[in-house]
Design a binder for these strands. Sequence first.
DNA 1: AATGAATGAGCGTTCATTCAT
DNA 2: CATGAATGAACGCTCATTCAT
Lengths: 187, 187, 187, 187
Amino acid sequence: MTKRDTRQSIIEQASELFYQKGYNLTGINEVIAEAGIAKATLYSHFKSKEDLCLAYLEHRHEAFMEKIKEFCEGKPKGAKQIIAIIEFLQPFYDSKEFNGCWCIRMVAELPKENKKVKAMIRKQKAGFLAFIQQLIEDNMPDKKPKEQKQLARRTYLLYESAVAESHLHGEDWPIHESLKMLKEICQ
Amino acid sequence: MTKRDTRQSIIEQASELFYQKGYNLTGINEVIAEAGIAKATLYSHFKSKEDLCLAYLEHRHEAFMEKIKEFCEGKPKGAKQIIAIIEFLQPFYDSKEFNGCWCIRMVAELPKENKKVKAMIRKQKAGFLAFIQQLIEDNMPDKKPKEQKQLARRTYLLYESAVAESHLHGEDWPIHESLKMLKEICQ
Amino acid sequence: MTKRDTRQSIIEQASELFYQKGYNLTGINEVIAEAGIAKATLYSHFKSKEDLCLAYLEHRHEAFMEKIKEFCEGKPKGAKQIIAIIEFLQPFYDSKEFNGCWCIRMVAELPKENKKVKAMIRKQKAGFLAFIQQLIEDNMPDKKPKEQKQLARRTYLLYESAVAESHLHGEDWPIHESLKMLKEICQ
Amino acid sequence: MTKRDTRQSIIEQASELFYQKGYNLTGINEVIAEAGIAKATLYSHFKSKEDLCLAYLEHRHEAFMEKIKEFCEGKPKGAKQIIAIIEFLQPFYDSKEFNGCWCIRMVAELPKENKKVKAMIRKQKAGFLAFIQQLIEDNMPDKKPKEQKQLARRTYLLYESAVAESHLHGEDWPIHESLKMLKEICQ
DNA sequence: AATGAATGAGCGTTCATTCAT
DNA sequence: CATGAATGAACGCTCATTCAT
């Protein structure tokens, strides 16, 4: 196993655990047990748990962006691609791994003074918002820039609500309702 | 100090700490230090930290419902009272104590298997949703029940998004944008 | 066992270990094993290993000052009491617990930036020097203050050399030689 | 870089670190980082940290003996050369690298059972004492052998005290006072 | 001859909880 | 009814050392 493989394996195990159990409730010991490595090995790849946390967030974000991009771009050109953003949530919610939004959950666990992780989360969410805006610009080129920006923000807010609330309630009506609203404002 | 006073004092201190620092990052020791009591005294009032957690959530919820009710009912009858729900957020966001939604943050910190606390959170959010629905029924009696229910859900989702996202980004545009959307769908 | 007893017992075990094995080479685990207590118990008495270190130094210093005072004051008035300071070393060296000067050894183990412990050590050595000076003032009242101060410093330096070098070489000639020098300058 | 160069470079970096930070507080990782080599490379040159410790002591001792010899022999023949031994300390103390006596500090960090390193330190100190004695024999040939030996030991003890105590107190009066004593007994 | 990756054992510290008084 | 003292288990992290390449 190469160094890169080991690193990747650590990130994957940590990703699973951090997302399912929560960051603070997951001990380094569990991560290494799952990854089948020694503690010092982990610390030769990541200088601290926080460092691993950043890698975890990056890993999730990249995988997420890739999947949602693919999903949206697979839809017919036009409003359908925007609407797809929230449609994307249903299969995610239905999967047994669904446990809400990793960003919102991580923010909830962070001490107020942790700037580094918070900064990364904000950057990622800003990236997601930028992706939505780009999608709108590409699919609704006739809208005025100001309207495009507004629609992007609204889509984003509805998406976030749908994830967080379907998770909190353990029901998927927030996804349906957000979807309906989005469809209405996309006309 | 009566037994009731002691209990109340514990809850208040815990409330402050759990909300500001996070539940898992707040130790029992900090709570008793702030409350000025002995450890065993705390455990004579609450059988576990989880028990205190439930009391904390109840305390927050009651205070919140009281305040938002008062705020909304202080507005002129009609759509204005519905819109007030999200307007309520701006001063909260501006206050230095603002630290997002305690329910969403608590859900993020819980182990998946903790049913008790999750149940209470769901009950509270359901209560909040019921309050919104009641407000709509009172202020928009002409709407059909189905429409009322839908508007309630949408208002709720926009509210939740506004809190969570203004907290996450440290900016208040999510509040403004949610508010605009709400105004549009309230017409 | 009262709280005071437990604390005292921890200090005594730590004192033994820190002095015999060295501070950095003695783990908290060994201290608690010897003291027969749980780790958290130790940390309820001392907020850190450094805190225990300070208590250890204080413990050693107090016991030392008491013993050397008694030893010196047991000698006939006059130069004999001064000379006794270094004579005191011989039985200490002969005892199987002898392991040099705890202050010099602790200074050697400290990171440069540790001001707190270094300050305590300096204060203790200054206290020891002050004791010597007082002994000289009491026993050699005819000497000029300046000479008294000088003799105190010299006695101190010879004492320190005798401890450190007898320890380093594992031989007691440094004690004998220091003693001879002291006798000569005491005349 | 030849094998010898690598080895020398390791020793030099270790020497700096061990002396400034202390032996136990210096990790192997710091040494290899400073030397710019891989961990396994270090272990191909030195079979253990203890082995490197021995090389470090040798390195310090040789450099020290060379410098002090040169310093003393640069003085006019006679008592001046003996006195120079302690005069040598003042510029050393004034330099920003001064951190006490490496031997005394190393002895303080060793486990009691470490014979090997302790033996080397004793040998070195014996060598230093022998150098002093030789210097006395050369410069005070009229003294009886017994007196020469005694003066050597006294000079040695005063030197050691001066180093250790100026280091401990962070003041140079121990050097001045030792120097004065030495001058008096050199007459 | 030199390396990068891995390790077991141990570090100092904190946690929620219990119990004799 | 309230307390001070104690605890077992787990925490995140670092150490000197080894080995396949």
